[in-house]
Amino acid sequence: MAEELSTGWGRALVFVYGVFAVAATGRSTVQLGEDAGKLPYWLSLVAAVLYLLATTCLLVGGRVGWTVARAAVSIELVGVLGVGVWSYLDTGLFHDKTVWSHFGQGYGFLPLVLPFAGLAWLRHTRPPSGAV
């Protein structure tokens, strides 16, 4: 499975997840450095960790990689949807743009598309029966 998860369209996913891992890590670190008391900045850090985890698992591959990647991408989907809705309801809390607020508007809505693409790819590369 190792080569399958990170080749073909998987390679495009690794690239985008990698870019987002770097972007989210950088942004959350800078924002938390300025003000560690804001919840949205911590949510950005959570996003950063999930992107890093997904990127790594896609590269590592195997059943464990696949399983952890699916968990990470699933949490990511819940996160972007949850934070997206939340940021529209409570505009005061999300005054500053973060990775997931407003469904990732600041990033061309890619954070919203990414987990769907990730889950579709993981579905496509599901290890043969017996796994998970």
Binding site: T7, W9, R11, F15, G108
Partner: peptide, 19 residues
Amino acid sequence: FSLAERSRVGTTILLLAVA
């Protein structure tokens, strides 16, 4: 990344990078 994927996937990766 795109050199490792000589198909439309590689082209897509370049497009993502440029975007």
